[in-house]
């Protein structure tokens, strides 16, 4: 019996060990390593031990680097615009399509296609469509007698181009989440509103949206986090150009490491990006906590009223 108990006590560790080992060696250690590397002057041909410790100089360099600041703002602008557009479109579509519909399952399947395909391929097909001569957009414009648009060679248009591609790929994500939230709304609230004579707009703004708010905010934050990670689509479409107009931070990290071989500086940038995302994630977590606490309080209050 005692042997069995001992075996039982060890089992959980044996089940957990492989996952634990992999996570520690291939995930936690690299992230810690990155924090350390951000204080080094390090090129890819050196072992990390040979790299010179330079304190905060990488960060100071970044701070003084106009190109970095530019790409930081491009990232913020991209994330803000893309997420705003996708939220408006996604939630709007969910409001429009929230009815009993036969083909809804098929529709949802079709909508998740853009998210499942490799970002590299998404970039590829948009690059083809934006092509100045063979692309479908400019061909259509020209066939109507308009001038072609310099989609990927003008700094304003190329920014618009990457925004359109991202909106195409990720609006369905918000649509699906918003629709799920909407269909789990309490019917009673909507029926009560109907009895009180609320019109469609009032129902949307006074009842549906406020009740969906918790899910919408989490959706927004998830999407925001993902918007900071976009890289492959832009890499294929514009590679950050023309100039720095579409060089978002993730792409800049990639190029700093790959093309300019400044691993220390790339690590410092990674660190900053990670901190930014960490702040967002913690914000999301706290928001969840507050919501739960509030829900619990309301439930407690409701129970008190009952007795």
């Amino acid at each position: 019996m005692s042997v069995a108990i001992k075996a039982n006590r060890l089992t959980p560790y044996m089940f957990l060990a492989p996952a634990g080992i992999i996570l520690v060696f291939a995930l936690l250690y690299p992230i810690g390593y990155m924090v350390y590397a951000s204080f080094l002057d390090w090129s890819p041909s050196q072992r990390i031990g040979q790299a010179e410790f330079i304190g905060f100089r990488n960060y100071v360099n970044l701070w003084n680097d106009d190109a970095f600041r530019e790409s930081f703002w491009v990232t913020i602008r991209f994330a803000a615009i893309v997420v705003t557009l996708e939220m408006i479109l996604g939630v709007g579509l969910a409001l429009l399509l929230d009815r009993k519909l036969k083909g809804m399952a098929v529709l949802r399947t079709v909508f998740i296609l853009p998210m499942m395909i490799a970002p590299i391929v998404v970039g590829l097909m948009w690059r083809y469509m934006y092509h100045p001569t063979v692309g479908i957009f400019n061909r259509t414009l020209k066939s109507f007698g308009f001038e072609g648009i310099p989609w990927l060679s003008d700094s304003t248009w190329s920014f618009i181009a990457i925004v359109i591609a991202d909106v195409w790929q990720w609006t369905p994500f918000i649509f699906i989440l918003a629709l799920a939230a909407m269909q789990s709304l309490p019917r009673s609230a909507l029926e009560a509103a109907e009895i009180d004579g609320a019109n469609e707009w009032q129902k949307i703004f006074m009842i549906k949206l406020p009740l969906m708010m918790p899910v919408l905010i989490v959706t927004l934050l998830l999407r925001l986090i993902d918007a900071f990670k976009v890289l492959e689509v832009i890499l294929v479409l514009t590679n950050g150009g023309p100039g720095l107009s579409t060089e978002i931070l993730a792409l800049r990290i990639f190029r700093t490491a790959q093309e300019f071989q400044e691993l220390g500086e790339a690590a410092a940038m990674s660190n900053l990006l990670l901190m930014l995302l960490m702040a967002l994630t913690i914000g999301m977590f706290l928001y969840n906590r507050v919501q739960e606490a509030r829900a619990a309080r309301q439930r407690a209050a409701a129970e008190k009223d009952d007795t």
Binding site: A26, I31, I225, L231, F254, A257, N271, L274, L277, M284
Partner: peptide
């Protein structure tokens, strides 16, 4: 769930430098 969420947050671009360094050296 907290760990999952945190992992979802880490962009592959952030892992690029450390993973390259560690895997190589």
């Amino acid at each position: 769930s907290m760990t999952t969420l945190l992992m979802r947050m880490v962009p592959p671009a952030v892992l690029l430098v450390p993973v390259f360094g560690i895997w190589t050296f």
